[in-house]
Every structure is written in C-alpha cells, then in structure tokens.
C-alpha cells in the first residue's frame, strides 16, 4: 500500500521539520483559495464558487475517510452515512429550533462521530471484504430508516428555509464554511499521520496481530479512527444540506456518493496526507469538465471512468503515493 519514505534519525525524532519553500507555496495556494470569493469580476463567478465549494467539501470528506481507509486500512463504502447524518442534524435544528447550521455544524460532526464509534462496534467484527460489505449494509439500513421516518420527512426529506444572506453574496458563507472544514480536516489528517496514533493505525493496517502483541489496543484505535473519520463528513453535511435548502435521503445516501470517498483517496494516494486533497480536486474538476464538454450523458461517465483507470495504471499508489515512491514528489506536496 503506502510506501513510506525512509526518514533520517533526526527526521524520525522531530517528525520532519517542513522546509521553507513548502510553506511559501502552500501559503500562496491557500491565499488564492481564500481570496477567490472576492474575484467577482470573473465571468462565471457563481459557477466557480460553486465548484470551489464542492471541491473543498470533498477535500474535508476524503481526508477524513483516509484516516480509516488509508492509515488504518479499513475501506468504508458507507461513509456518506455521516455526511447524511450531519445534514439531518443541521436541518432538524434549523427547522425545529431555528438555529443556523453554520452554528450547529460542529454538533452535527459530534453526532456523526458518536455514530461512527457505535457503527464501528458492529462493523469491526468483520475484516477485509466482509468489513466493506458491512459498511454498505449499514448505509442501506440508515437510508431505509430515514426514508421511512416521518418525523424527519420520510422520503421527501426536509425543506429548509433559504439562508438569510444577500442574494449576490449567498454562496460566499458556504464557500468559507467548506474552506474552514477542509483546512481543519487536512490538519487533523496531518496530526494523525505525524503522531503516535498514526503509528498505531499504520501498524494495524500492516498486521493487526503483530500490532496487538506490540501493545496496541487495536479495537480501541480502530474505533477512534472510525470516530475521527466521521466528524468532518458530519460537519460539511450540515453546511451542504443548508446550501441545497433540502435534505433528502437520496441526495446523501446514494452508493455513488459513498464511492466518491474511496475513489478520491485512491486516485490521490490513500494513506498519504496530501493524497485525498489532490484526489478530491482532480475528480471534481474531471467531473465538471466532462459534464461541460460531453454533457450529462453516458459518454461523460465513460470518459471519467477511462481517465481514472489510466490514472491508476500509471499511478498505482495514487498520484501522491506513486510520485513519492519514485522520489518525484515535489516538496510542497510532501506532507507525510
């Protein structure tokens, strides 16, 4: 899976002091992303902002998935459960109590996190393909549950009031909400990777019995990984539901949404910090380009599928993973 670069003894101890040029490049990129909403002269301003919002949302979600699916080696094909739960928590609190999802988003994340830990208690009874299938089963169960629960609107879901922002600026708060979530989710991924927890999770991915015999409480770490990986999908779910102005089971619990989590991390490089970021940007832009130029048809699906197959053919460890394994990864993308 992930091929980890050999650190010098010093780097191993001080958890790799990042170089200066890396920070400059990252600061420039982040400044560009942060200032994008001010570029109102752009011809397709609203479209650009919308795509940016979606990319940032997926950066947050893919980075979170990577904690469980990348570092720990447990592929979840039902992570949109937490995305959906976040949307419902945010939506219900807006409808019932009138509190803005921008305020309740962290709470939505917390509910997703607790759900993640509970779900982990069940799904971690299985390993490998059986684990994957149990996460899909879980997705179907939650879907059916919410689809039939009239209190939260059943199959029609919840209709949310429009956000009380001035119309020409209405997309901006959502963009920044996703930006903050994305940055924090990547920082969380970075922290996990550079901490002892990351060491434990990678040990679990490598050999669970050996990890346990080395003193790692593997069950507890797997639950912690599950919970941590559920937090930001819950957060961005609350924000996304608000921006859609509706929360409907089919919009959040589709298996195609679940697949995005996996695809982005694998294309970018699962188990690396930068991989999910690159993967999310790559796949969302690829989707947008192919819809723009090929229309919302089957050709567009075939095209994106083909590109992904080619990407994995030439970058079997994902873009970041493969570049690093061949020592071609530019310094500013090496966050591991």
């Amino acid at each position: 899976m992930t091929d980890v670069r050999t650190p010098t003894p010093e780097a191993a101890v001080t958890s790799s002091e990042p170089n200066r040029s890396r920070w400059i490049v990252l600061a420039v990129v982040l400044a560009f992303v942060a200032l994008l909403p001010f570029a109102r002269w752009l011809e397709s301003y609203n479209y650009v902002l919308q795509v940016g919002t979606i990319i940032l949302m997926w950066v947050a979600m893919a980075s979170s998935w990577n904690i469980l699916g990348g570092y720990t080696g447990y592929t979840s094909l039902g992570h949109n459960v937490f995305f959906g739960i976040g949307a419902y928590v945010g939506g219900m609190l807006l409808v019932e109590a009138g509190i803005s999802p921008f305020i309740t988003a962290p709470l939505a994340g917390l509910v997703a996190m607790i759900t993640g830990a509970i779900v982990g208690l069940i799904t971690f009874r299985a390993k490998g393909p059986a684990f994957i299938i149990s996460t899909i089963a879980l997705l179907l169960v939650i879907f059916l549950l919410l689809d039939n629960w009239e209190y939260v609107g059943g199959a029609n879901g919840l209709s949310l009031p429009l956000a009380p922002f001035e119309l020409s600026w209405v997309k901006v708060p959502f963009y920044y909400g996703m930006l903050v979530s994305a940055v924090l989710a990547v920082l969380l991924g970075y922290r996990v990777a550079h901490s002892k927890m990351g060491l434990a999770l990678r040990a679990i991915a490598a050999d669970e019995v050996k990890a346990e015999v080395a003193g790692i409480d593997t069950r507890r770490f797997k639950l912690m990984a599950y919970a941590l990986s559920a937090f930001f999908p819950g957060v961005v779910g609350a924000i996304w539901g608000y921006s859609l102005t509706y929360v409907r089971p089919t919009a959040f619990f589709a298996i195609s949404v679940a697949a995005q989590f996996v695809l982005m991390s694998i294309i970018g490089g699962r188990g690396t910090v930068a991989g999910p970021v690159i993967g999310a940007a790559f796949i969302i832009m690829l989707n947008e380009l192919s819809v723009t130029y090929l229309g919302g048809s089957e050709i567009n699906l075939a095209f994106t599928g083909l590109i992904m197959v080619l990407a994995l053919l030439f970058f079997p460890l994902g873009l970041v993973g493969t570049l690093r394994a061949t020592n071609k990864l530019p310094g500013w993308l090496d966050w591991d």
Partner: peptide, 21 residues
C-alpha cells in the same frame, strides 16, 4: 511478522504508543 511498510525504528516505536486519544 514485521510491520513491513514501516521502518525498523517505527516498528520499535509502536511499543511506546499510549492506548488513548
């Protein structure tokens, strides 16, 4: 059984991981 994708040092450092957040 070694933790293959981890360095020898990292293999040894696993012993020092506390079982908590």
């Amino acid at each position: 059984r070694e933790l293959g994708d981890m360095t020898v040092l990292e293999n040894l450092a696993v012993a020092g991981v506390p079982n908590s957040f």
